[in-house]
Amino acid sequence: MITCIAVDDEPLALRQIVSYIEKTPFLQLSAKFSNATLVKEYLKNNEVDLLFLDINMPDLSGMELAKSLENPPKIIFTTAYSDYAIEGYKVNAVDYLLKPIEYQDFLLASTKAEVLIKKERLLKTEIKKTGDYLFIKSGAKHIRINFNDIEYLEAQKEYVYIYLINSGEPVKTLIRLKNIEEVVPKGNFMRIHRSFIVNLNHIVTVERNRIIYSDKRFIVVSDTYLNQFKEFISNNFYN
């Protein structure tokens, strides 16, 4: 079952999406909202698989909400305007539905999301953690990776790139960053951006709010994680 949220400030449009969700056997409605700000609060304490999100809403738009979420669920945008496709692509939306929405189009987009979500669930079971290392699937291979060899991890769309110490090419795996975050040792790794988790043991140079790995490789710590990172620096580096 795919759990989902419906969000639209127009009552009729919200009722339609809710009715479509209830009509679809593999979808389960977790909540419905007419305000995007309330969605953000809900997601802090509740996990859902899929978000049906209207773009044009007052106070906080659907697009602004999507960009602000650190670990967003899959998103299907709903909109009365046809000029948001490129923006939707930038936040990795599964699809976007143009109002008025026909059930056939809704079902097609939902099925696409279901395939992606089920694939991620299967991949999550393929991360095998044992002591100081894990086995992870990369293409047709299963690769053993020692936690201490990981320099940092980067999320790019559906993939995570695992950068290793003294290794030129990262290990690429089809999985969400959140799934790996759940298995790496909490005391040694820190999320410092929605797309990056770093191994704290391998941080050598910090310049302003950037972790420097080389002349061409650095990571900017995002505002969301800045206070946590500054606390780490304060406790481990001389001022």
Score class of each variant (00 low, 15 high):
residue 2 I to S: 00
residue 4 C to E: 05
residue 14 L to C: 06
residue 16 Q to E: 14
residue 18 V to C: 11
residue 21 I to W: 00
residue 21 I to A: 07
residue 21 I to D: 01
residue 23 K to Y: 08
residue 25 P to N: 00
residue 26 F to E: 00
residue 27 L to I: 10
residue 28 Q to E: 00
residue 31 A to H: 08
residue 31 A to Y: 08
residue 32 K to L: 15
residue 34 S to R: 03
residue 36 A to C: 09
residue 36 A to N: 01
residue 39 V to W: 02
residue 40 K to F: 12
residue 41 E to W: 06
residue 42 Y to Q: 02
residue 43 L to I: 03
residue 47 E to A: 12
residue 47 E to K: 13
residue 52 F to W: 06
residue 54 D to K: 07
residue 55 I to R: 01
residue 56 N to Y: 12
residue 56 N to M: 12
residue 59 D to C: 12
residue 64 E to F: 11
residue 64 E to R: 04
residue 65 L to K: 02
residue 65 L to T: 03
residue 68 S to Y: 06
residue 68 S to K: 08
residue 69 L to N: 00
residue 70 E to I: 13
residue 73 P to L: 02
residue 74 K to W: 02
residue 75 I to H: 09
residue 75 I to W: 01
residue 78 T to H: 13
residue 81 Y to Q: 14
residue 82 S to H: 10
residue 82 S to R: 14
residue 84 Y to R: 01
residue 88 G to L: 02
residue 91 V to D: 02
residue 91 V to L: 03
residue 94 V to T: 03
residue 94 V to I: 13
residue 96 Y to R: 10
residue 97 L to N: 07
residue 101 I to D: 02
residue 106 F to Q: 09
residue 106 F to S: 05
residue 107 L to H: 07
residue 108 L to D: 15
residue 109 A to S: 14
residue 110 S to G: 04
residue 112 K to Y: 04
residue 119 K to H: 15
residue 119 K to A: 12
residue 120 E to R: 11
residue 122 L to M: 12
residue 122 L to E: 14
residue 127 I to H: 05
residue 127 I to N: 04
residue 128 K to T: 00
residue 129 K to F: 05
residue 129 K to Q: 10
residue 130 T to I: 09
residue 132 D to P: 00
residue 132 D to I: 05
residue 136 I to R: 06
residue 138 S to I: 05
residue 138 S to Y: 06
residue 139 G to R: 10
residue 144 R to S: 04
residue 150 I to R: 03
residue 155 A to Y: 04
residue 160 V to D: 05
residue 162 I to H: 06
residue 162 I to W: 09
residue 164 L to Q: 11
residue 164 L to I: 09
residue 166 N to L: 11
residue 167 S to H: 14
residue 167 S to Q: 14
residue 168 G to E: 04
residue 169 E to C: 09
residue 170 P to Q: 11
residue 171 V to S: 09
residue 171 V to I: 15
residue 171 V to D: 07
residue 173 T to D: 04
residue 176 R to H: 13
residue 179 N to R: 12
residue 179 N to W: 13
residue 180 I to M: 10
residue 182 E to S: 10
residue 184 V to R: 01
residue 190 M to C: 07
residue 199 N to H: 11
residue 199 N to R: 07
residue 199 N to S: 09
residue 201 N to D: 09
residue 203 I to F: 08
residue 204 V to G: 04
residue 205 T to A: 10
residue 207 E to S: 13
residue 207 E to R: 11
residue 208 R to I: 10
residue 209 N to E: 15
residue 211 I to Q: 03
residue 211 I to D: 01
residue 211 I to T: 05
residue 212 I to L: 08
residue 212 I to M: 13
residue 212 I to K: 04
residue 215 D to I: 09
residue 215 D to T: 13
residue 216 K to S: 14
residue 220 V to E: 15
residue 224 T to G: 06
residue 230 K to T: 01
residue 230 K to F: 00
residue 231 E to Y: 11
residue 232 F to V: 11
residue 232 F to Q: 07
residue 233 I to P: 01
residue 233 I to V: 14
residue 234 S to D: 14
residue 236 N to D: 07
residue 237 F to K: 08
residue 238 Y to T: 07
residue 239 N to F: 15
residue 239 N to M: 14
